[in-house]
């Protein structure tokens, strides 16, 4: 598949806009899921996924054919999503790390098992519940979790996409998995 995608990318680079349609069709679910995992809202995720593809198209000439296209595309997706969170948030007071701890934020200070009142009335359909729990994690954990579980990327690929060392990726996955284990225990 990767070689077929490379052929298509070559056509797109030559100016064949319609060839890009295959790229979108092939990657739309993965890109959407990554955005969704990071941003936590279906409408915004779709918006971000769309922006990802547009940006990929506009910058297609900066894509190096020797590299893996999906890696490049996911990098755009995570960057756009993380940017969006940065711009929009007044909730840094909960996302901020507690001093003297690594990766522990104010959420961990909340009683973990109790749902907030407005969350209780929300539908407890499984996916949205899982996502709700993922949203309790800091952004940097969410992006690693998203990449790891949406497309089962290797630790090395995730480290390349997010430009962080493999060791950091590992730590974040482990911590994220532990945190979610506690939160999803009752599902």
């Amino acid at each position: 598949m990767e070689t077929k995608i490379k052929e298509i990318i070559k056509q797109v680079k030559k100016g064949d806009q319609s060839a890009f349609e295959d790229v979108v069709t092939f990657y739309q679910n993965k890109v959407y899921q990554i955005c969704f995992r990071v941003i936590g809202n279906a409408h915004e995720a779709e918006d971000l996924a769309q922006e990802t593809f547009i940006r990929a198209y506009v910058n297609i000439h900066s894509f190096d054919d020797k590299r893996k296209f999906s890696t490049w595309l996911y990098r755009i997706a995570t960057n756009i999503s993380i940017d969006r969170i940065r711009k929009k948030k007044p909730d840094y007071f909960l996302d901020a790390e507690v001093k003297g701890t690594d990766g522990l934020d104010m959420y961990s200070q909340l009683p973990a098992e109790q749902l907030l009142p407005e969350e209780e009335v929300e539908s407890l359909e499984l996916q949205s519940y899982i996502q709700q729990e993922i949203m309790q994690l800091p952004t940097k954990y969410r992006s690693v979790i998203a990449l790891r579980f949406v497309d089962e990327l290797s630790l090395a690929e995730i480290s390349e996409i997010l430009s962080i060392p493999v060791g950091t990726v590992k730590t974040r996955i482990h911590r994220g998995r532990e945190a979610l284990r506690k939160r999803l225990r009752r599902v």
């Binding site: 739309q28 679910n29 899921q33 995992r37 996916q127 579980f149």
Partner: peptide
């Protein structure tokens, strides 16, 4: 649970 995201679609 985390992997079961296939029903999430645009």
């Amino acid at each position: 649970l985390l992997k079961s995201s296939s029903e999430l679609q645009p």
